[in-house]
Structures are given as C-alpha cells and as structure tokens.
C-alpha cells in the first residue's frame, strides 16, 4: 500500500471554495454582519452598544479558548458549562474569606475538574466525549448541591471586577483579551503549544518523537477547566449572584460552535485562536442582529445549527 502514499492532491474548484471558507469564512461573515448592522440597524455604532456586546461575549470567548486547545488535540470538553457553575458556587461559598480567596478557590476547583477529565482521557484512555460527559453531569450536580438556589451577594471587589471599566474598556473584556493573547502565545511560542498541536496532528508520530503525550493531554484539560472557571467567576461577578442551575448551561455547545466556526478542525492538529474569538463574536453578533430587528431568538439557534453544519462540512470537504 506504500504506492498510495505519494498521491498528490488534486484540487477542484469546489474544494478550493471550501478551503477558502474554512480559512476566512468566519472573518468574512463577521465583516458582512457588521456592515449590515452599520447600514440597517439604528444606534448600532454607539459605544454603549459595543460595550454590551463585548461584555456579553467575553465568557464565551474565554471558554472557547480552552475548548479550542482541547479540540486541537483531537479531543472535546463537554464539561466547561458545568465547571462555570461550579466556579460560581465556589465563589459564593468562600466569599466569607474575602474575594481573592473565593476567586482562587473557584480557579482551583476548575483546574481540579479539568485534571479529573484529563486523567481519564490521558491515563485511563477513555474517549474524551464520555470522560467529560461524566464530568458534566457530576459537576453540575455538585455545584447545585453546594449552592442549591440563587444566592445574591454584595462584595465590592467582585462588583468592581464585574462592572468597572479601565480606559473605557470593561474589565471583563480586558481579561478576555489578555487571555486570548496568552493562549495565542502559548500556541505560537511555547514548547507546550507546539507539542499540543503535534499530539493532535499525529499521536503516533508524537510518541515516536519522544513527546510527553499524556502530560500534554492532561495539561490541556486542566487549562480548559481553568479558563471555564475564569469565565464562571466573571459571569458571577457581573450578575452579583450565583445560580448554579442555570449558569453556563449549554455553554459547551456555544464554545464548540465558536471553535468549529472559527476554522479549527475537529480532527485536531491545528488551533486557530483568532478564528475562535471571531467565531464567538459571530454568534454574538448574529444574536444581536436578530434581536435588534425584532426577529425571535429561536432563529438564532436555527441559524447557529446551519452554521455549525456548514463549518464542519467545509472542513470535511477540505480533507476529502
């Protein structure tokens, strides 16, 4: 069968279109939606509107970054929404010791959840989808057990974190931007980042090249858990309340959508950080556009479904 290996790829016009779509489709779509809104949506260009959109999208961006890393290793992390809820519950539980302690506790809980999922994937060899499904169910339950009902709180530090702006930019958005840069740096410039994409691109080759495959895998899930916890803390501080039953619900779906739409292939070996951010923005813009034009929210989900299918189909056409 060695004779097949050398087969060069023949590109048809359709394949080229699909490739273009996968590479730049998300940018083009965001641009098109922006233009549409500038022309047809009243008050769209106002600063307040942009602020609202960015604040709303920040938690999605942060969880999507973690998801992008996991998907880069040919994995998936269904537990991110539940981890957000757990982080929120931890904040409430430890707020008595002060906001810093509460935030650290939340982050530790997120990392621990990620470590549990990562251990199942890397060391036991469970499929990522099952491992993180078990985690999703268990952690959402745990969050609900810890904080059974909506709990409001008043903590100056958290209020600052949730609503203060620096140089006109909300802190929440700044955190998301900083994390985006950090993750981009991780992927582009660190040993770990290179090893991560290599493990996703060809696990057998990575092992033969002496890469610490298992350590890379567990670390990726820990990072995903951490980022989800950050998103959970931010969302909680904005709400000034913790509601583990609803916080982060279906967040895993939004994150997967953002990553896939952003052009990161589900087959691993590649992480597109900016594309992921754009994917999250696209969904946010779409939602905002529909709302502003008095189209029901139900449309968003249907359109989102079509976009996911199109994105995955484009990625598939590229490989075939």
């Amino acid at each position: 069968m060695a004779e097949l290996a050398a087969a060069p790829r023949v590109w048809g016009g359709r394949a080229r279109l699909l490739t273009w779509l996968q590479e730049y489709g998300v940018y083009a779509s965001v641009l098109a939606l922006l233009l549409f809104n500038v022309v047809f949506t009243p008050h769209f260009l106002e600063v307040a509107n942009f602020r609202t959109q960015l604040i709303q999208v920040a938690p999605v961006v942060i969880t999507s970054l973690g998801m992008a890393l996991v998907i880069g290793t040919e994995g998936i992390d269904l537990s991110v929404g539940a981890v957000m809820a757990l982080a929120s519950a931890m904040v409430v539980l430890y707020l008595g010791y002060g906001a810093p302690v509460a935030i650290v506790a939340a982050l530790i809980a997120g990392a621990a959840a990620g470590a549990a999922g990562g251990a199942l994937v890397a060391y036991v060899g469970v499929q990522p989808i099952v491992a993180t499904l078990a985690l999703l169910v268990g952690i959402r339950g745990m969050a609900n057990v810890l904080v059974p009902q909506l709990t409001e709180f008043r903590n100056p530090t958290l209020i600052t974190l949730g609503s203060r702006s620096v140089l006109g930019l909300p802190l929440v958005v700044i955190v998301a931007a900083v994390l985006t840069v950090l993750v981009a740096f991780l992927i582009k410039r660190t040993t770990f980042g290179r090893q991560l994409v290599a493990v996703g691109g060809n696990r057998a080759a990575s092992r033969l090249s002496g890469l610490p495959v298992r350590r890379v895998l567990i670390t990726v899930y820990i990072i995903s858990g951490l980022l989800a916890a950050v998103a959970g803390v931010l969302a909680t501080s904005r709400l000034q309340a913790s509601d583990p039953t609803s916080l982060g619900l279906l967040m895993e779906l939004s994150a997967i959508t953002a990553v896939v739409v952003g052009g990161t292939p589900l087959t691993g070996g590649r992480v597109r950080v900016l594309g992921t951010v754009m994917g999250a923005l696209l969904i946010q813009l779409l939602q905002a556009t529909l709302i502003k034009h008095n189209l029901p929210q139900s449309w968003t989900q249907m359109v989102q479904a079509v976009i996911i299918l199109a994105a995955v189909y484009a990625a598939r056409g590229r490989r075939a």
Partner: peptide
Amino acid sequence: SFQQVVSGAFLALVV
C-alpha cells in the same frame, strides 16, 4: 441535585 453527582460518579466508574 445530589442525584447528578452520583450518576456522574457512577458514569465515570463505569467507563
């Protein structure tokens, strides 16, 4: 909600 914790743990145990 404790049921979710148990079923999550159980699921992990099973896999």
